[in-house]
Design a binder for these strands. Structure first.
Length: 581
RNA sequence: CGGGGCGUAGCGCAGCGGUAGCGUAUCUGCUUUGGGAGCAGAUGGUCGCCGGUUCGAUCCCGGCCGCCCCGACCA
């Protein structure tokens, strides 16, 4: 493809609304353009990388045995009412919905569990027809609270979504495992440095789930990892081993009141009493759809609200207002303690961080007073401990006890063991060997195509632009004609371009009437892995320059050998995991 | 949902009660030709929308829409 006949405009200035480097570079390279908040156009150049990403997903899914199909994007409310997700997604304002001329309600699908389940329920009646994994790669819609980072969190985006149907849990394990393997191959082929972590299943529902995280500073998620044993989890889901506590080994002292005038906050009490925050026990009052709860944890820790929601089995969790705190606990905000809550009509949950606590400081249950010497067992009578404190860097690994580290990651893929949540709700059942009717056991899987492409840019760029992995580059090779005004030089460039095209190479040809500097800048910005400079001083010796974008190495080769040299370099960059077309 | 900010040329921005400017991009000419060239000239704007104040509004006021950022309470 010749640039002179292409539709491509690079821009020098950084777009004002771009925050993430991938957004900046993809926009500057002319590969995408914003149409509205979270809604983007892909230019021909941008579409090429997007399609290559999509193609890798499709190839690996087909190889794994999954079958591609197409489900509707426009879906009727009735379908969503069957699973109960219409109400839930509507209340979260995630769903784009609309009405037809007959006032029927529809949504633009953010995912397709209901549609695929209704399809399978109509077709599958026997265990003999299982297992089966179906997938599609189609546009999805989510009315995100805050779309941002360009392709990373859009409201309209291309997503792979796969669904497995099995007769039992062992079958699900196998289907899930096949997806896991396909995911690993996909992200490897995309040239990404990724990690797989345990995750919270969230609104989709289900039991086990794992996220595929591309490590990058712009990542929206925090992931906890243990370098020693390989444990990894989204921070929302992460557990920790037992943290050393200041009261370890101490003998319980007497409970005594201590006046703390005007000091309701942890930091204020810590300073006033000259203690550490870890010696304190704090009580947070939350409101949920099933009533108020008090969460008890150590003073230096934060609540992991996702973990707390799961522990409580609730969907909504917000900190209570001051009035609600008082009416629930009988104590003003800042002075709630775990020992004066018995008899109150409120659920009390304690985090493991306060297990065995003695000589702790906490609220006395009345304004301007705290207590010292609190023993959690003796004074508060707490017996059951859950785990809902947010993991911190340096906390002990839940498996091996070595220190955890926290990094940022971009969630490019997610796999869930769904179980029978949808198949039960929607009566997607089959008859087993014994003639009994059972719900199918489902798994659900997703990969953000545009997000994966953007993640590749996050991981592969430098000050001058994108450094595409070969597999995702819009074109693998670019020929730069240095002085097209010179007839002989132009013919050489044309000739090389023609020869590469003839042998099927993926080549872009900058034949514009521009100065070399402009072309070099654009070449770096667009990030084609291989560049061939034709013209100028090298051509005077009958040579062209072969430039590798990733390491900026330059090698002069005779024009006559250029095709072979490009082929060899391309082979070298492709590495061992290339899959034939 | 709350707070803050911004909507002026394709892009980045300035401006101001008297009908609009800079950089860049684009077009033309000349010069130039290995890392976003120089000079000269030119094109390009319902100043987000609606209403109000005013002799006069891009500017002031009100409303709406759009967009960006931060936050969503850790007692």
């Amino acid at each position: 493809m010749r640039w002179s006949k292409y539709f491509l405009q690079t821009v020098r200035e950084v777009p004002g609304d771009a925050e993430a480097i991938s957004h900046v570079l993809l926009t500057r390279a002319g590969m995408m353009r914003r149409i509205a908040a979270g809604i983007y156009a892909l230019t021909p150049m941008g579409l090429r990388s997007h399609r290559k990403t999509e193609r890798i997903v499709r190839e690996e899914m087909n190889r794994s045995g999954a079958l591609e199909l197409e489900l509707p994007i426009l879906q009727p409310r009735e379908l969503w009412d069957e699973s109960g997700r219409w109400a839930r997604y509507s209340s979260d304002h995630i769903l784009f919905h609309l009405r037809d001329r007959k006032e029927g309600e529809y949504c633009l699908a953010p995912t397709a569990e209901e549609a695929v389940t209704s399809l399978v329920r109509a077709g599958v009646t026997s265990y003999r027809q299982l297992p089966v994994t179906l997938y599609q790669i189609r546009t999805k819609f989510r009315d995100e609270i805050r779309p941002r980072f360009g392709l990373m969190r859009g409201r309209e985006f291309l997503m792979y979504d796969g669904y497995s149907f099995d007769a039992d849990a062992a079958g699900l394990d196998a289907s899930y495992g096949a997806q896991d393997g396909a995911y690993r191959r996909i992200f490897e082929r995309c040239g990404l440095d990724f990690t797989v972590v345990e995750a919270d299943p969230g609104a989709i529902g289900g039991s086990d789930s794992q996220e595929f995280m591309v490590l990058a500073e712009t990542g929206e998620d925090a992931v906890v990892r243990c370098a020693a044993c390989g444990y990894g989890a989204n921070v929302e889901r992460a557990e920790t081993g037992r943290r050393p506590a200041p009261w370890d080994g101490e003998t319980p002292g007497a409970l005594e009141d201590v006046e703390t005038p005007g000091r309701g906050g942890i930091d204020e009490v810590v300073e006033f009493l000259g203690i550490t925050a870890s010696r304190m026990i704090k009580c947070l009052v939350y409101e949920t759809e099933s009533g108020p709860v008090v969460a008890i944890l150590r003073g230096d820790l934060d609540v992991n609200e996702v973990a707390l929601k799961n522990a409580l089995g609730v969907q909504h969790l917000t900190l209570a207002s001051e009035e609600k705190v008082e009416s629930t606990t009988g104590s003003p905000v800042g002075y709630v303690g775990p020992h004066h809550l018995s008899g109150r009509n409120v659920r009390v949950l304690a985090d493991g961080s306060v297990r065995g606590a003695v000589n702790a400081v906490t609220g006395a249950g009345r304004r301007d007073w705290h207590v010292r010497g609190l023993s959690i067992d003796r004074d508060a009578g707490v017996r059951d401990f859950l785990s809902f404190a947010m993991a911190r860097s340096g906390d002990p690994c839940p498996r091996c006890g070595k220190p955890l580290s926290i990094a940022r990651g971009i969630e490019v893929g997610h796999i869930f063991k769904l179980g029978t949540k949808y198949s039960t709700a929607m009566r997607c059942e089959f008859t087993d060997e014994k003639g009994e009717t059972r719900p199918v056991v489902m798994g659900t899987y997703g990969i953000g195509v545009g997000r994966t492409m953007a993640a590749a840019v996050e991981q592969h760029h430098d000050d001058d632009g994108i450094v595409w992995p070969l597999a995702l580059a819009p074109f693998e090779i670019e020929i730069v004609s240095l002085n097209p005004a010179d007839e002989a030089a132009r013919r050489s460039a044309d000739g090389l371009y023609g020869a590469l095209v003839k042998e099927g190479q993926d080549v872009f040809y900058d034949d514009r009437d521009e100065r070399p500097g402009v072309k070099f800048k654009d070449a770096d910005l667009l990030g084609f892995p291989i560049r061939v400079n034709v013209g100028g001083r090298a051509l005077k010796d009958g040579k062209v320059e072969l430039v590798t974008r990733s390491d900026r190495s330059i090698r002069a080769v005779p024009l006559a050998e250029a095709v072979e040299a490009v082929r060899a370099l391309r082979h070298e960059l492709a590495g061992p995991i290339e899959v034939p077309a």
